[in-house]
C-alpha cells in the first residue's frame, strides 16, 4: 500500500515514461533562480580557491589553512562548494593567496534617478562610477535644498 502510494505520488510529480535526461531537464527548470545562482557562485569560488592554492607557494592545502588560521575541514568544505562564505573569509583567503577570488562589477552609469526639489519638479540625477551623485545643472539649487 505504502509503495503504491509512493509510486502514484511520484508519477503525479514527474512522468516516469520520460528519459532520464528529460526528467533531469524538467527538474532543472524547477530549480529556483537564487538556488542556481548560489550553487554556481559556490562552485566557482571553490575552483578559484583550489586553483589559486595550487599556483601559490603554499606547500599544500593544509599549510594554506594553517596560514589563515582555518581548520582543514573548513577548507575542505569551502573547496567542496558547501559553505556560505562571508566576505571576511573570502578576503582573508584573497590576501593570503595574493589574488582576487571574487570581483564586483564597478558601479556604472546605469540609472537616472529622479530627485525632487522643493518646487516638486522632478530633476534627473546621474549616478557615476565613483558612486557619487553628480547633479550638473541643479547642483547649487538642490544643494541649498538638501542643507535645509
Amino acid at each position: 500500500m505504502k509503495g503504491s502510494q509512493l509510486k502514484k505520488s511520484s508519477e503525479d510529480i514527474l512522468d516516469v515514461n520520460k528519459t532520464e535526461a528529460e526528467l533531469f531537464k524538467e527538474l532543472l527548470a524547477k530549480v529556483p533562480d537564487d538556488v542556481s545562482r548560489l550553487v554556481d557562485k559556490q562552485m566557482a569560488i571553490s575552483v578559484a580557491v583550489s586553483d589559486a592554492i595550487e599556483k601559490s607557494n603554499f606547500k599544500n592545502r593544509k599549510a594554506f589553512a594553517e596560514a589563515i588560521g582555518m581548520k582543514e575541514s573548513m577548507l575542505s568544505r569551502i573547496l567542496a562548494g558547501n559553505v556560505n562564505l562571508t566576505l571576511k573569509t573570502i578576503t582573508k583567503m584573497e590576501s593570503a593567496l595574493n589574488t582576487n577570488i571574487i570581483s564586483v562589477k564597478s558601479f556604472k552609469l546605469d540609472s537616472e534617478h529622479q530627485v525632487k526639489s522643493q518646487s516638486g519638479l522632478g530633476k534627473k540625477v546621474s549616478i557615476y562610477n565613483s558612486g557619487e551623485a553628480a547633479i550638473p545643472s541643479i547642483a547649487s539649487e538642490d544643494k541649498a535644498n538638501y542643507s535645509k
Binding site: 533531469f24 527538474l27 532543472l28 524547477k30 530549480v31 529556483p32 538556488v35 542556481s36 548560489l38 550553487v39 554556481d40 562552485m43 562548494g81
Partner: peptide, 10 residues
Amino acid sequence: FFTLISRIDQ
C-alpha cells in the same frame, strides 16, 4: 534536492 540538481548541471 534542487541544490543537488543544480550541482550536477554545473
